[in-house]
Design a binder for these strands. Structure first.
Length: 638
DNA sequence: GCACCAGGCGCG
DNA sequence: AAAGCGCGCCTGGTGC
């Protein structure tokens, strides 16, 4: 080996290449490999059947151009090593292009094939993908596609599925489930995925990988992309995506579809660029929480519990000490926080054990859910988080966020400050003020509630004083606030009492006061519930979006209507934001809040613009927003 | 040793 | 009959 061979070239843009992934083929993997013929890429796979066939690059390009000519677009899908962009083991493996009849699998690690893919992607007037962010972000990072024009031409079959049939649940919008539901026996991706999963399992590799999965055990990183099972799997996704697009596109309202595609592209910036982690802050918090967790662990051990994370162990110990615990739905003793919290002050063993367990859980959550994954991205990656926002990711239409979920960071304790703006930038944010109640007022038209909102009267204080008397405290107000929403969303008196932490009589009084004060709100909610019982299945929002109301749960209907309407207000704000000078900025929506990274010199103006984008009016009810102070690190909630 | 489920907990 | 709603991620426990 020459001396220069030990010199590692600096990774482009701080990224590592897939070629760096260490291949650690076990004996099991070698055995599986013997059963897999290797297809030389590029390869053609046809829905009609037959084995994948290796073809020349020229022939592959001709085939793809033929698809564009006849179909007017290309379905696109990619396979990666399964790690996030920026991770040292990240890498683009293959790119698949085609339509419902034929797909060509290209080797993205081959320079010539990659260049061909780049040209083909640039040529097609339309792109189809299932969950487009997962394809466009790797393609853009590999330099195979230009970001903005790609989004202009993209059609996402997840969005098609949600718009074409609002009654289809989110869980049925995964490619395999959707293909089974829509394409029936014609679907090819479910069987191809089962075959893939079997290969992974036989080789001893995991399918469900995450940022901390050792590279030597991840099937996505270890598998040979040319193995015939993988080529079939890769192609099947394109074949089914294209078929789904053909079936679903005609059932979608073009204006609503364009709206969803625009907002998807806006949130995709976060996945592409990401947000920077503060390594020192992550380490400091990790140290603190680890110390505290180990102390709590020892404390719990003193009560004879070897594993403080084990609910059965904790439950058994508490029962033995004389505590009374409610049952979980499956009949086990519940040791959840709302159950344990009131037992904190119990004298003796029960109180002490409860306090130690809750303490342990608090620190364990911080470490395992937030800090350790961040640490992985720092030590094994480029120190950035690149979550994916699913813009129609829930049954109510709300957005969701994964890998990591930045919508669930602790409001207190400095976890949010692990995320920072880039140098020369600041984070600005604003949130809708009391949006659920305002939407409830707008949808119900309740005269009293509308007047209280416009006059700035706090209904929660009002009810708290009526129920608890003129000396009602801030805690009473907070309890009432939870009770108001609990009631609006269909909670019964016992549940409300438990939720609020008051007697059933007080909860009943609260309900009575609310019904008396805002009768139109109560009747609107009751009317919607009854309508669902009578067969109504849809609620149409002001934007034209339709939310499906679950037939089996009429009591959920008011919540669905309010959540979806609030989501549409958020979308409208994002669409207005797109038109500002910072429309391309990295942003994160958090249901009633928008966080954006902007150049620091623009922070004040951007902050004002953000509020202006969010503020509007709904059925005469003002929808207001409030900005937070621009900051370098994401701050705790006020 | 992996997939799956339940329980638990973080958010709005 | 009665039911607050919506998520994602983690661990422990179980079953294969």
């Amino acid at each position: 080996m020459s001396a220069t061979a030990t010199v590692v070239a600096p990774p482009e843009e701080g990224l590592f290449s897939a070629a760096d992934v260490p291949v650690a083929r076990s004996r099991r993997a070698r055995v599986v490999g013997c059963t897999q013929s290797v297809v030389v890429l590029p390869a053609l796979v046809e829905r009609a059947g037959g084995p994948p066939r290796g073809v020349s690059l020229e022939r592959a390009c001709d085939l793809v151009r033929g698809v564009v000519g006849s179909w007017g677009g290309l379905a696109v899908d990619v396979e990666t090593t399964g790690y996030p962009v920026g991770h040292r083991w990240w890498g683009l493996r293959t790119v698949q292009l085609g339509d419902a009849q034929a797909a060509v699998v290209f080797d993205a690690t081959d320079a010539e094939q990659a260049q061909a893919v780049r040209v083909l992607l640039a040529e097609t007037p339309r792109l189809f993908a299932h969950s487009a962010v997962a394809d466009l972000v790797p393609l853009a990072h590999a330099g195979l596609i230009d970001w903005a024009p790609a989004w202009e031409r993209m059609v996402d079959t997840v969005l098609l599925a949600r718009l074409a049939d609002p009654s289809r649940s989110t869980t049925q919008c995964g490619l395999k489930q959707l293909a089974t539901a829509v394409l029936g026996s014609e679907a090819v991706s479910p069987a191809a995925d089962r075959a893939r999963a079997e290969v992974f399992a036989s080789a001893g590799w995991v399918s469900n990988t995450h940022v901390g999965t050792p590279v030597t055990t991840s099937g996505w990183a270890q598998v040979h992309p040319g193995w015939v099972t993988m080529v079939r799997y890769a192609a099947a996704d394109v074949l089914d995506t294209a078929a789904l697009a053909d079936r679903l596109l005609p059932g979608c309202e073009p204006v609503l579809l364009a709206r969803e595609h625009t907002v998807q592209a806006l949130t995709a910036r976060l996945t592409q660029v990401g947000l920077r982690l503060n390594p020192l802050h992550v380490q400091a918090l990790l140290d603190d929480h680890t110390t505290a967790r180990e102390q709590a662990r020892e404390h719990v051990r003193g009560f004879g519990i070897t594993n403080p994370g084990s609910a059965p162990q904790v439950g058994a110990a508490l029962l033995a000490a004389g505590a009374e615990l409610p049952m979980t739905p499956t009949g086990r003793a519940s040791v959840a926080a709302p159950v344990l919290e009131p037992l904190r002050d119990t004298p003796g063993v029960v109180g002490e054990l409860v306090a130690a367990v809750l303490d342990y859980r608090h620190h364990d959550t911080a470490i395992t859910t937030f800090l350790t994954p961040y640490q992985h991205l720092i030590t094994c990656g480029d120190g950035r988080v690149r979550p994916t926002v699913y813009t129609l990711g829930t049954d109510t239409g709300r957005m969701s966020c994964v890998r990591p979920n930045l919508q669930q960071l602790s409001r207190q304790g400095g976890i949010r400050a692990c995320l920072t703006a880039d140098p020369g930038h600041l984070l600005v944010s604003a949130d809708f003020t009391g949006v659920e109640l305002r939407v409830a007022a707008a949808l119900s038209g309740d005269t009293t509630l509308r007047r209280m909102i416009t006059e700035g009267v706090d209904i929660h204080w009002l009810i708290a004083r009526q129920v608890f008397g003129p000396t009602a405290t801030k805690a009473d107000r907070y309890a009432v606030k939870r009770g108001v929403f609990g009631r609006l969303y269909g909670g019964g008196v016992p549940t409300l009492a438990a939720q609020v932490g008051c007697t059933r009589a007080a909860a009943a009084a609260m309900v009575a006061t609310l019904d008396e004060m805002t009768p139109q709100l109560s009747s609107w909610a009751a009317g919607l519930r009854h309508a669902v019982s009578a067969g109504r299945r849809e609620f149409r929002t002001y934007s034209g979006a339709i939310v499906h109301l679950p037939a089996a749960f009429p009591h959920k209907a008011p919540n669905y209507a309010i959540q979806r309407t609030a989501r549409e207000l958020l979308v409208d704000a994002l669409l207005r934001w797109k038109m500002t000078p910072w429309g391309d900025a990295v942003l994160l929506p958090v249901h009633d809040e928008i966080l954006v990274m902007v150049p620091e010199t623009d922070a004040v103006a951007a902050s004002e613009a953000l509020v202006a984008c969010m503020e509007t009016e709904l059925n005469g009810v003002p929808i207001l927003a409030q900005a937070s102070e621009p900051s370098y690190a994401w701050a705790d909630a006020a």
